[in-house]
Design a protein around this nucleic acid. Structure first.
Lengths: 243, 243
DNA sequence: GGAACACGAAACATCCGAGGTCTGTTGCAG
DNA sequence: CTGCAACAGACCTCGGATGTTTCGTGTTCC
């Protein structure tokens, strides 16, 4: 096994064993390299890899630190991974989301604070009457994020966040091609919000299921009938359009 | 932004755009480095990082290749991430698993082939009457893996695989401390198997829920009552003990 | 006395070039 | 045709030199 991989494992072990706690600073490059018995170049490769998955955080001129290691940070790295699956396996990701989203919505109906529910309602009303597709999708992402956050389970929240990325493109495409999708999305969001506000977990769960299943069903048909199942490129997404 | 991070994005884009297809070989280090406008050292850091999340695969003496990029490979990298959450957030991971596992089991009851169901039964009968805790957990992992695989959704399967890792330790601890856990696990596995064999998705789902919820409930109590909620160290795990 | 500024040490960022090791291939001998 | 050995290509590792950024300190000015 390459020395770099050994170093990755060693550092990983140092963290898991508690020798390095979240927020701790690592020894300087030269020192750590000597201690692990490899060159600085190789050590830097290991550090860079652990950096990509948000385990370490290097600050030039300061030092290298262990991140907070909170679930949202680490699972956030999964977004990077999910990015590689845009077209072919979108349906599989969506199917998983269809399992998690209703469960999260039901949990939110139980655990969300009254203040957060109020904010959720504000989010809905902030959307103008005839929004652009991009604005709608951006609002949609925020809406579902707040619900996932309200589930009280950070792991579930981060996971849903990661899964939402790839489906966002699908939604944009849908909004552009399917008549009435905007209005329907709006109705369903309102229904979900009202179910949560009424503290009705089962009703909330059902609406969430309907909501996600709608996207899934539409996408399944679109991919099944289209000759080219590739989602059209629109690299400057919602953020750019909204500004 | 550091040049290494830029390189990571560039390579990522090359793959997403289709310029580099799964299985393709990258240009040699020196060539790619010049093309991306950085030194070989920095490029190697980028490659190493992409290697950790299973996007690239370097073979000494041969070259650097793009992996198959299949969901199981990429999500497998999440296991690495999950490893950092052994103690404090196990319950959150388990809660997510409690959502996914029943759904996967129900899907398996619908989609699993007859042959696979037969193999599932064989797996159960292979376990001796009074297995060691380690053997039981190993068998348990295989059992659930086969069911997840039978759901027909590779993303779901890989996700469950990643989530099972951290709970395995909890199960071992449980097996060691809770009387009757071994027999109960066995009964529940048999029930799940029979429900799948009978093609009863709802029954299978319920049994799976009961199964996971049992572990969750026990762990919740254990963590709640114990002064020190840390799972005891037993670094030489099932694999070492089984050999 | 307090705040803004300037300086210097510390640490990471980047690059370069040399030697080592492994792998796949090629060519020769049996 | 098969098996072995030598070769070339590609990655692995190292160590040092130089540039950049940040933080802490001491000084100066208000």
């Amino acid at each position: 096994m390459p020395v770099t991989d050994v170093a990755i494992d060693k550092i990983k072990d140092m963290i898991i064993s508690g020798e390095l706690a979240p927020g701790d600073r690592l020894p300087k490059e030269a020192e750590l390299a000597q201690r692990l018995g490899l060159s600085r170049s190789s050590l830097r490769e290991a550090v860079k890899a652990l950096c990509l998955i948000r385990v370490l955080d290097v600050r030039q001129g300061d030092g290298t630190y262990v991140t907070s290691l909170e679930p949202n940070l680490l699972l956030d790295a999964m977004t990077f991974v999910v990015d590689f699956h845009r077209d072919d396996t979108v349906l599989d990701f969506l199917a998983v989301r269809r399992i998690l989203e209703p469960a999260a919505t039901a949990l939110a109906a139980l655990h969300m604070s009254d203040d957060d529910i109020t904010e959720l309602g504000t989010l809905l009303s902030e959307l103008e009457d005839s929004p652009t597709v991009e604005a709608l999708v951006a609002n949609d992402l925020q809406f579902h994020r707040k619900i996932a956050d309200g589930s009280g389970n950070p792991v579930l929240c981060s996971l849903l966040d990661s899964l939402s990325g790839p489906t966002a493109r699908a939604r944009i495409w849908r909004g552009l091609t399917q008549e009435g999708a905007v209005a329907k999305t709006r109705e369903q969001h309102t229904a979900i919000y009202e179910a949560i506000a009424a503290r009705e977990p089962e009703l909330a769960r059902s609406w969430a299921t309907v909501h996600v299943a709608g996207v899934e069903q539409w996408l399944r048909n679109a991919l099944g009938t289209a000759d080219d199942p590739t989602v059209p490129d629109s690299d400057d997404g919602p953020a750019a359009a909204a500004s």
